[in-house]
Amino acid sequence: MTDSVLYSVFLLASLGIVAAVVLYVVSKKFYVYENPLIADVDEILPGANCAGCGSPGCKSFAERLVNTEDISDLFCPVGGNDIMKEVAAILGKEVVERDPTVAVLRCQGSCEVRPKTTEYQGPRTCAISAMVYSGETDCQYGCLGDGDCVKVCKFDAMYMDEATGLPVIITDNCTSCGACVEECPRDIIEMRPRNKRDLKVFVGCLNEDKGGIAKKSCSVACIGCSKCEDICPKDAVVMVNNLAYIDPVLCTLCRKCVDVCPTHSIIETNFPPKKVKKEVEKKVEVKVAVVKEQIVAESKKSKTDA
């Protein structure tokens, strides 16, 4: 009886010793030298592994930061300037400061303003339905509404609005990692500069069709009338292919263009309500306000949450 106990103890103990020796040898033999700086840098990085920097994860970005001489064109959008400065301090290299940005959705084609003309049956992902055809509406530039961007967002900064069928960006959560920009097959999401009160003026449309056709497929489409281009005092509006684009660098947020746009496709966010409000203007506001209100409401909500 005691024999068998002894045997088992002995057997297990020797097994343990053998395993320990093997492990030790293997770990010595396959040891890879790693620059300790990499671990330090990795520590500072946000650890979101969002690939917004272009590297597959924070660890590999840290390696890149340590191993490249000139890191001025490397940037972690999630960490922003503060983190990059810290990294630069550790590595003794120069970083270039960048303006913070935030994602905006350049499409207002909700179910209401952009009627569905066909019905899609198949896997509900934007990537696949974009391969099959131009989408359920007659606009082949706008949002497909299958929410690939929402699926890739790692920061809960996007959700699909059931009522409009469009994604909504929660500005406060957006880290500008760029995953959604990358994912969207229609390139609807754009990174625009973020300022203190998150004021933005941009064209919420990408439709390059001629005015009449664009208007028919979506009532808030940019029809390429150039009115905004004419009124802009800073020449910030450019017209390419029947489509207006507001250059965020030149734009001073004067909002003159917003009022002249006949289809209300220019979106302004987070501006205080205008003082004088005539009846006509109210109507104008309402449509634009759909998108606007959501953004405001959302940012408020997330603020109170936080």
């Binding site: 569905k116 003309t117 066909t118 019905e119 899609y120 049956q121 696949i128 099959v132 055809y133």
Partner: peptide, 9 residues
């Protein structure tokens, strides 16, 4: 009455 269906082959 109903919209045309699109799907892949």
């Amino acid at each position: 009455s109903q919209p045309i269906i699109i799907s892949a082959s």
